[in-house]
């Protein structure tokens, strides 16, 4: 089978377009998604194909259009809400957390909320702290939502299709820094199920667990560490809710060492949650405590050098792996 190499952003566009062709209940709304073709060109061409009733430009009004989409989802429509950045979702926290995530429960099973919220998450590059939010730790705390973070073009398409078909609210976190990356995406229909982590690199000495863009630095670190004779296994968690802890545990039982790489802040984070679960399930297997690499515990700085130092990067990951494997 020949490889079909496309960009991450086009994979997202294909997922939305194919689902919209299959199901008229699916529609896209958000800032600049229609006439502008998407602030990041993810929805390019969709207005032309589906028209303004299904590809809808909204004003800058996150609380309003998120709530509006949730109301529509309560009637069984399947909106895809694009946040230009998840940073902007903070002003919509009430609708997305209180309404979308809790509607099924509070209505006693009467009204679900089949909706996808998607957009850029994490530092885009010198955007300053208000525009560089990593919302995963903040939002994953809330039961009732699912959360997915794709790393490559294949997963971007397959996981977004799963998200759109899911009957629950899905928070779909993309990275601006990954949108132009390319990968193989098959022509035929496929989905990537939620709750199945992916072992992206086999190794024997240390398990690296991450989600989304920091995986890129995990690969760089693994190459560097290989030169030192440390063989890393890299696990892409893919979804945070559900979390595939089993795949992670299986790996740690083999390597006896674990480093979690999470781009959110360390306190009460995805990293601390995963570490806690690994400690619990691999208590007798670990040769060292689970090490964690996060963004530094400060607001995201603008200055390029500070921002690079702040983010989880190759240097920090290498140091953590050496420490976890007693190779310091």
């Amino acid at each position: 089978m020949s490889e079909r190499i496309i960009e991450f952003r086009d994979a997202l566009c294909e997922a939305m377009s194919e689902e919209m062709r299959d199901d008229q209940k699916v529609f896209l709304l958000g800032e600049e998604v229609a006439q502008y073709n998407g602030a990041y060109k993810i929805s390019k061409g969709m207005l032309d194909e589906f028209g303004p009733r299904r590809v809808i430009d909204t004003p800058i009004s996150e609380s309003g259009f998120s709530g509006m989409a949730i109301g529509a989802a309560m009637r069984g429509l399947r909106p895809i809400v694009e946040f230009m950045s998840w940073s902007f979702s903070l002003v919509a926290a009430d609708p997305i957390l209180n309404n979308a995530a809790k509607m099924l429960y509070m209505s006693g099973g009467q009204f679900g909320c089949p909706i996808v919220f998607r957009g850029n998450d994490g530092a885009g590059g010198q955007l300053g702290s208000t525009h560089s939010w990593c919302v995963e730790s903040l939002y994953a705390n809330v039961p009732g939502l699912k959360m997915a973070i794709p790393y490559d073009a294949y997963d971007a398409k397959g996981m977004l299709k799963t998200a759109i078909r899911d009957d629950n609210p899905v928070f779909f976190l993309e990275s601006e820094r990954l949108l132009s990356t390319t990968g193989h995406v098959p022509q035929e229909d496929y989905t990537v199920p939620f709750g199945q982590a992916f072992v992206r690199r086999q190794g024997t000495d240390c398990t690296l667990i991450s989600f989304g863009r920091p995986l890129h630095f995990c690969f760089e670190a693994a190459e560097e560490l290989a030169k030192e004779g440390i063989d890393c296994e890299i696990i892409d968690g893919r979804t945070i809710r559900p979390l595939d802890i089993d795949t992670m545990v299986k790996s740690v039982k083999k390597t006896n060492a674990c480093v979690v790489v999470d781009q959110s802040w360390s306190f009460a984070s995805i990293g601390s949650e995963v570490a806690s679960q690994i400690h619990r399930y691999c208590f007798d297997d670990l040769d060292n405590f689970v090490h964690r690499v996060h963004s530094d515990d400060v607001p995201t700085p603008y200055a390029s050098n500070l921002e690079q130092a702040y983010l989880p990067n190759t240097r920090k990951i290498c140091e953590a792996v050496r420490s976890a494997t007693y190779n310091t």
Binding site: G64, F65, G71, M74, G76, L77, D94, P95, M103, Q110
Partner: peptide, 30 residues
């Protein structure tokens, strides 16, 4: 909440129901 009677809730956060109301109208129109 009462689905058969098309009652989409009682909502506890003041004003939160108003975008939902716009959304229900969006949905019926759609």
């Amino acid at each position: 909440f009462d689905a058969p009677h098309h009652l989409y809730g009682g909502h506890g956060i003041v004003g939160a129901q108003t975008p939902l109301g716009a959304g229900l109208a969006f949905a019926t129109k759609y």
